[in-house]
Every structure is written in C-alpha cells, then in structure tokens.
Amino acid sequence: MQSNLQNVVETLNRIILGKPGQIKLAIVCLLAKGHLLIEDLPGMGKTTLAHALARVLGLDFQRIQFTSDLLPGDIIGSAIYRRSDETFKFHEGPIFTQVILADEVNRATPKSQSALLEAMEEYQVTVDGVSRKLPKPFFVIATQNPFHQIGTYPLPESQLDRFLIRISLGYPAREVERQLFSGQDSRKLIENLKPVLDAQSLILMQNAVDKVSVTDTLYEYLQDLVAATRQSNQWSHGLSPRGGLALLRAAKSWAVLEQRDYVLPEDIQAVWLAVTEHRLMSQSSSSSSIDNPVANILKNTVIPR
C-alpha cells in the first residue's frame, strides 16, 4: 500500500518537475480528506498538477473556471424541465466528480463561492430539498490569484479555514525550467499516464490515517504551537480548534506518506506552514517572506522530549 503511495509521488514528480514538496503536500491533503488551495499566478502548472493527480490516482476530474457571472447552479447543477415527461430532471453540475479544480475561485461572487465551500464541507449538495451525495473520494483543488485585482472577491478567513492546506507552486528553478522546455508536453504525458491507484485503495489509505498514533508528548507540542499563535500579537486571532485538528490530521497523513504509523515532531513541522499560514490573518498587511512570523513560531517552540 505504501509503496503505491511512493509510486504516486514518483510519477507526479516526473510530470510536475522540481516541486516535490508541493506534490507531497498535495497528496497529504488528499490523504487527510482535506481540500487544497493553490495560491498562484496563472500558468504555473496548477491545472497540470490537479489533472495529473486525478489521473495517477485513477479519479474522475472536472474543472470549473470561476468567473464573476458564475452562478451556484453552474457548479452544483440544476433541475431542468423535460417536456417529454413533464418533470424536472436534475442535471448534475461539474461538482459531481472526484477531483475538481476550481480555478480562480476568488473571481466568483461570494454566493457561488459559498456553494462550492458548502459542498466541500458537507460532501453533499442540496437542490430543491433533495440532498445528493457527492462521490467518494471528493477532493477540491482551488486556485486563487494572490493579488487582489479589481473585480475579485478574496475568500474571507472563515472560508479559507475550510482548505486543509495551502500551497503555492512558484516559478520553477532555472534547470527545471530548461527541462520543461526541452521535455515533452505535459498534457500528452498526462494522457499517457496509467493510474497507479484507484479510488478504493485511496479510501483505504485515508482510513489508515485515522490509525496513526500520536503520543501525549506530541499532543503537547501541537498545543504549544497552537497556543503560540494565540498568544502572539502578529495576528488578530490565533488558530481555531479546527485549525489544530487540521494540523494534526495533516501531520498524520504526512506520517503515512513517510511510511510510518506514528507521528514525529518532524511531521508536524513539515505541514505547519502549509496548514496554518492561510488561517492566520496578519495584522500588518505587509508580510515579508524573510521574517515569516508563522515560521518563527516553529523556530521558537521547543519540542517536548
């Protein structure tokens, strides 16, 4: 089972070059049954990542381009009157899939955004009083433009909280980009990709995350970290309990990815930034990347031994 996961990671690394950390975090997010937020500019390979991920895992894939005139119905689907039998028939929207790429989620109106986010949280959609279950596994990859352009609706913190992990891909390194140029078209690569996993085994792995053990010492470490965010005056609010749970879950998934059935402090540290950074609203709007207060917390918190 675990060798399959390694296989997944390796395959993805062959397609998305030079981003092993992000790939791992994406898989961790998937294992933890969370949703992934990619904050990046267009053309960085978000779609490729999402597509490749779905393909390798043998999952269905849909993409929704969010725009300002996108309506909830365009995401969820709507009931359409059928003249032949004079009934309304529900047509499933693009959300009824296993992996969904919500591109530029901040360009849509809050109304449409919340339709997506509700589905993410509930794993079901309700149309005309009928609840419809979403397929399993259900994994949302949303992308967001980091710059607040005119006509965008940045996701509020309360909504950001629903994404387990936020990553950004960033520009590739020079050599990597050279490979990119000289290599095959990634689209073609993805088309030729054979699934390494299937949905069923992915669910099994997701369940394995629940069985990962955490010692009291580590709970203590986790609490120390969470408490540090709450005590700091860098942010208006510290991490919520949901944030803490997310951290724990992500750390457990990381442990599974590292082929362990117990969590190490390093697992928590590995997922710390990706899990917490988007949940903490900086009071000073200018956050320099050099002195990242979230990273500082990691640096200043002693691991209980």
Binding site: L264, E266, Q269, L298, T301, V302, I303
Partner: peptide, 8 residues
C-alpha cells in the same frame, strides 16, 4: 536544537 526533531 530545541525546535529540531531527532529525525531532522
């Protein structure tokens, strides 16, 4: 280091 795991 205080903030360093043994594996690190």
């Amino acid at each position: 280091q205080d903030n360093q795991g043994v594996n690190a």
